[in-house]
């Protein structure tokens, strides 16, 4: 464990807490893409299948449980909570995310570390996570001005993978046989997808203006 990875995990946790706060405090999920939440639930379920077979550390196991439970709770809340689900932007959240799932699955079958069930699921989860934010970014562009908590949620979610890239660079230089180009390339693509969001987020912070993504 290094400071970059720990900071990345904490940033990821903060993004989920901010989202939970937004939904709980405003009893609304307007501006939140349910499709991105469903993709993330799939990412965690596919990536953490080893939660019962591979014990790495208490921290690792607890974080996996927190990520799976919180994301499933958010999806349930956006689908089932009679108050929250009314504020879901159903007509704006129209990204065809099934294509993302299919593409990630095909790519995982072609490019993986080992042709085993678990490794292919892991590669699938890595590729899917890279594109999981797309429905959310499209929804932000369509829904005009973005409320603060939603903006912070997306910001922290994008920042966490950027910190992981620093973690991989650090491990590359400090661990002899460290090579994980699948996660690295995918992590770079994932972080790059946030580039324009980060730009407009920085502008809104600098000009102390409301965050607004151009349509």
């Amino acid at each position: 464990m290094n400071i970059f990875r720990f900071a990345g995990d904490m940033t990821h946790l903060i993004s989920i807490l901010v989202l939970l706060l937004k939904i709980y405090a405003t009893k609304s999920c307007s501006g939140i893409s349910r499709k991105t939440q469903e993709l993330y639930a799939l990412v965690f379920l596919a990536r953490y299948v080893d939660i019962f077979t591979e014990f790495i550390s208490v921290y690792n196991t607890i974080m996996k449980i927190v990520f799976i439970a919180s994301t499933l709770a958010i999806v349930w809340c956006m689908r089932g909570h009679r108050v929250v689900r009314r504020s879901y932007d159903k007509e704006l959240d129209t990204f065809r995310h099934y294509f993302l799932i299919a593409a990630s699955l095909v790519l995982a079958l072609l490019v993986h570390e080992k042709f085993t069930f678990q490794e292919i699921l892991w590669a699938f989860s890595i590729y899917l996570e890279a594109v999981a934010i797309l429905p959310q970014l499209v929804l932000l562009q369509r829904s005009g001005n973005v409320d603060n908590l939603t903006g912070q949620y997306v910001f922290f979610l994008g920042a966490y993978r950027g910190l992981y890239i620093l973690n991989w660079i650090y491990r590359y230089f400090t661990e002899p046989h460290f090579s994980r180009w699948i996660a690295c390339v995918s992590g770079l693509v994932q972080t790059a997808l946030y580039a324009d969001f980060f730009y407009y987020y920085f502008l809104s912070w600098k000009n102390n203006a409301k965050l607004k993504l151009p349509a």
Partner: peptide
């Protein structure tokens, strides 16, 4: 063989 340490990440 020890599992690749890589899967120790979230």
């Amino acid at each position: 063989k020890k599992k690749t340490s890589f899967k120790d990440e979230l």
